[in-house]
C-alpha cells in the first residue's frame, strides 16, 4: 500500500465520502464545508482526483441517477479508501501531538 502522505485535495475528497456516497457537486460542497471554506475544488481537479482514487480502488461508483436529463454519478469510499484516510488521520494526529507537546514547553 502507498504510504505517502495524501495531498490536501485527496484527503478532503476521501473525508467528504466517509459518511455517505456523494455526487460531484456534493463532494465539492462538502470539501468546502470540511475545510472551513479554505479549499475550493475545481471540477477538473475533482475528477482528476476521483479518476486516480477509482484506479487505486479507494473510491468506487455507488449508483447512477438521471437528474434533469443528465447523468449524475454517486461515489462511495471503499475499505481501502477508509484505511488510507484513517492512516492519514493518524499521521496528522501524531504530528499535531508532537508539535503541541513542543509548544507546551515555554522557553526559559
Amino acid at each position: 500500500m502507498d504510504v505517502r502522505p495524501l495531498t490536501e485535495p485527496t484527503f478532503f475528497v476521501l473525508a467528504a465520502l466517509a459518511d455517505q456516497p456523494r455526487h460531484g457537486y456534493g463532494v465539492i460542497g462538502e470539501v468546502q464545508g470540511l475545510s472551513g471554506g479554505r479549499v475550493t475544488l475545481r471540477v477538473g481537479t475533482l475528477y482528476g482526483v476521483l479518476d486516480r482514487l477509482v484506479a487505486e480502488g479507494q473510491v468506487a461508483l455507488d449508483r447512477e441517477e438521471v437528474h434533469a436529463g443528465r447523468l449524475r454519478r454517486y461515489f462511495r469510499l471503499t475499505d481501502a479508501g477508509r484505511l488510507a484516510l484513517e492512516t492519514e488521520v493518524a499521521r496528522q494526529e501524531a504530528n499535531a501531538r508532537a508539535a503541541r507537546a513542543r509548544l507546551a514547553v515555554r522557553p526559559a
Binding site: 457537486y25 471540477v43 475528477y47 479518476d51 443528465r70 449524475r72
Partner: peptide, 17 residues
C-alpha cells in the same frame, strides 16, 4: 476513454456549480 467516462457527470457538476 476519460471523455466517455466523465463528460456527462462533469457537465452536470459544472452546471450545478
Amino acid at each position: 476513454p476519460a471523455r466517455s467516462r466523465w463528460a456527462d457527470d462533469m457537465t452536470e457538476t459544472y452546471l450545478q456549480v
